[in-house]
Design a protein around this nucleic acid. Sequence first.
DNA 1: TGCGCCATACGTATTTACACCTATTTTATT
DNA 2: AATAAAATAGGTGTAAATACGTATGGCGCA
Lengths: 207, 207
Amino acid sequence: MDQTIIIADDHPLLLKGLKEFLNENGMNIIGEAPNGVQAMHLIETLKPDLAILDLEMPGMTGLEIAKHCQSKKLDTSIILLTLHKEVYIFHEAKNLNISGYLLKEFATEELLNCIQKVLSGQSYFSKKLLMNDAEDRNSLTGNLTPSEIKILRLIALGSSTKEIAEKLFIAERTVDKHRSNIINKLQLDKKHNALLIWAQKNKKIIF
Amino acid sequence: MDQTIIIADDHPLLLKGLKEFLNENGMNIIGEAPNGVQAMHLIETLKPDLAILDLEMPGMTGLEIAKHCQSKKLDTSIILLTLHKEVYIFHEAKNLNISGYLLKEFATEELLNCIQKVLSGQSYFSKKLLMNDAEDRNSLTGNLTPSEIKILRLIALGSSTKEIAEKLFIAERTVDKHRSNIINKLQLDKKHNALLIWAQKNKKIIF
DNA sequence: TGCGCCATACGTATTTACACCTATTTTATT
DNA sequence: AATAAAATAGGTGTAAATACGTATGGCGCA
């Protein structure tokens, strides 16, 4: 493998383990960073083929790095490593240049496979991230209609009513009405931002 | 160092990093385990001088292992590694045979120091765990005035401007002004609810 | 066929959140 | 004692979120 890789993680032991593991498997690691800001800098200066990033890092998360790369039109492929099952990332990944997403827990089992796929232009997302919490989800969002769920997700991602309307090509008032219905179905307080707060808190469930 | 060590962590990359790091520093690792149950088994069979354990592991947590060791009167010293600042462990440690407690985040910086102390019979608890998130907090909320922090906390708890004004016996406009100042200091997007979302996300830091 | 659910859309009104501005009083710090 | 910083308060304006209505077309199911 002559393709270049950088890695970033704020946990030094994990960074070390990752580096050793990749080296043992013949990968060409040209840079490593202990936080998101430095990782971004490495990507900009070294322009590696692949960046393997921790999702949660101080300064800049792996997700934010992906967004920056996209807006700066850098063609570094990105694999995210995460500790917890943040399923919502999977959905964001569609709009971003994220090619892989793995749990650290299973990293060695799947990492090589993932890297190979990504370096050959494909993408790889750990199935273990997808098949979970089906129960929680149903108990909470089972009553919601498909449109309502769509809107709820956009709210969770930080979109305003206006933005949602634009994205879904429907009227703001319609979105408004859906919000209202969602609030009723979830029996939220009739308080300002109650829906927003709920969506933020329950990100993991609604995706 | 001829004293024997076993290590356990459910994250394979971290376990690898830890092993390499300790080997490089001349430690004598006689066993490693990917979960708590196997770690306990290693301790019972190999009777190492020291066990370096992840706090959160499937099957048996580092804390449970410590309890077992105590009840079985094994004199293996125990160092716990943790990802998150679970300060409550520190208080439990007094009643258990836990000799060290470190954040993975700072592990390399302090780990050798900690191991030396523990192997020589002393104990070592990361100060970063005690004087809590003082750094994180300062880096993020250090510029904030006491009033601003008060208000930020109320926002995180879901209070509206009106409610905050009532609780603090000040005018709504004053609260408004503080919100504005907080947003500026934290350099948040000038977007609706940006402050609310930030406060929700960073609950752990501002309290 | 008709009933009900859903998505769509619009109107009106209220409450919040925030920007940008000024100004006074209190409290610290030097 | 003087200067700086913080807390307080207010004005004006915009955008957003929600409540509470009504209304229509589509679609499935009894």
